[in-house]
Write a protein that binds this DNA or RNA. Sequence first.
DNA 1: CGAAAGGCTCTTTTT
DNA 2: GAGCCTTTCG
Length: 710
Amino acid sequence: MIQNILTGLNAKQKEAVEAIQGPVLIVAGPGSGKTRVITHRIAYLIKTWDIHPRRILAVTFTNKAAREMEDRLFGKGEKDSVTPLLSYSMRGQLTVGTFHAICARFLRIDGHHIGIDRNYTIYDDGDRLSLIKRALEQLMLDVKTHPPRPIQYAISEVKNKLLTPEDKASQSESYFDEVRQRVYEKYEQLLNDNNALDFDDLLMKTVQLFEAHPEVLAKYQSRYLHVMVDEFQDTNLVQYTLVKQLAGKHRNICVVGDPDQSIYSWRQADIRNILSFERDYTNVKTIYLEQNYRSSQTILEAADCIISANISRKEKALWTKNQQGAHITVAELYDEREEAQYLVSEVEKLISTKRYKLTNCAIMYRTNAQSRAIEEAFIRYGLPYRLVGATKFYDRREIRDILAYLKLVNNSADSIAFLRIVNVPPRGIGQKSIKELARVATDNEISLYEATRRLVAKNERTSLVKKFKVFLDIIDELMAKAKNTDAAGLIDLVLMNAGYKDYILTGEAGEDRLDNAMELRAVADDFADLGPEGSLAALLEGVALVSDVDNLDEKIDAVTLITLHKAKGLEFPIVFIAGMEEYLLPHIRSFDNAEQMEEERRLCYVGVTRAKERVYLVRALRRHMMGVSSSNEPSRFLDDIPEKLIGTPQQPKVHKGFLKAGDKVRHETFGDGIIVASFPAKDDQEITVAFKGGVGLKRMMASMANLERI
DNA sequence: CGAAAGGCTCTTTTT
DNA sequence: GAGCCTTTCG
């Protein structure tokens, strides 16, 4: 059974779905059914206008969003909970994905036109930092005087703004700019030597490919009759250019976005792209989706009060038919520990009403560092949580090691991969040996792998050569077997033949790490039907381009802990925003810049508008940041919410769970005392208090004791 | 050569 | 307070 495509849409949504010709700009407020419009629009093109799915390109912000879109359109093939819009047989024909994933695919196919090998490696953040460090080393520059991180930002900025290195060079002023320039050039050379592209290259090189080879661009232009881009407010210049190129022929381009939710300017995203859009394309049809289906009246009103304080913004009138709903809760706690305990106990309260499940609750915060205190509280109380993206799966050592083996097999020029595993497991190859090998490589202008081959081929019986031969044999065997072994099979070989399994098992938490390795193997196995070469390429590419939210597993009943940035695009019945303080939200780094301050406000707006039913804005008076404790004023954003929308929570004299050793308290009969110990106990706290005046030690439950803090 | 210990700088947000 | 790098010792 297939749904009718236009039923159940409101007038504006219908208009957006039916506007299939020419440039269309959909300004979609939070909760306005944006995803629905996009999927229905695609279904409408395919079903009503008989457009072949192969001729549609849809760009999403995360892989997860891409997957969900496909699920909604074509179903999952199993027993679907929602009726798909189209038949399952069409699945896989549409081009959907993030800019990065789509460009990676283009370059795999057509990169050779601009000298990109089809087996190129994608370097992630860590890899590019290593490469910058190596560039500094080779230029004999000190890492301390030239920290790699800012250099990387600068390079990234250049690439995302489509400046050539020369552009940047011409405007360089200081000594540091000049150094940066030299590092940039060296870095590019190293990338090239390693047959590798960084994240930004994926986009920039695609634009360059299209510029240099109009015939390649023409191929894609003709194919993609319809182009759609989600989260358009967060596109940067490369992305904007790419879209312009691809839609250049048919000009059926539909972009969806909300300027008020633009929160990635630090990644060179530019809200002005929305304005440029109306300028660059003639006869743009602009449609505003203003009816909100997600949040209560109260939440929407509060959100509007927050965002309205931004000066540079287009007025928008969001409205909803939803109920007034509960008041916004604003809570103030002593420090981040108490804040965390408060969050846990509020979640427990909500759960105990049986109206909500843990999955319905999300705790959002500005910085990743804030998650620790919250996690600790959840662990103490034994409440399940899911932390989006702290220790990323693919960042784990064992995963990176195994992937390095696979990367080297796939691309022998990848020296970052080579160096990572040449001595893992230990083969007695240390600094000195590697220095020697590196000399051979630079002298002959060959990769480290090639250098190893030459060294071993000389057949000298030195211990150095013997050690390298052991490693070379392992890699060569993997390379040989890779011709008829798929990615999962290669992982088995790394574990067994390369001795990696024994190696991790002897180390700390060996079993867990082996479990992780097997999880990676399971991921690889998903690509099995692509055959030996295909599965390896697909695994490496997939792994390089996943985001944290992609792996958000909703099946387990647990509270979600997530940064405000990552929360974009998600929704929850209950939203807690922790750390509603000056210097944190808004973040201290935005204080000297009015534009950045407005972005902080939008970030807050994004957080509040994730909520359907209840919002808690929580702050702490004191907070440990980078070791030291400091006190923070309440966030200015709290001042923008009118009193009438805020419900004052009935604060018990001392909230249960708030007491810690060292706190001075007063008891009705025992008098004054000091807490010497406290233990969490289910939803309460068992405390031991030393009272004055000969009363002595008393042990009591915090909720029953009726203590007053003094 | 490798493991362990101490010292250093950072944390805004991420495809 | 943690990760990363360097130094030190076996």
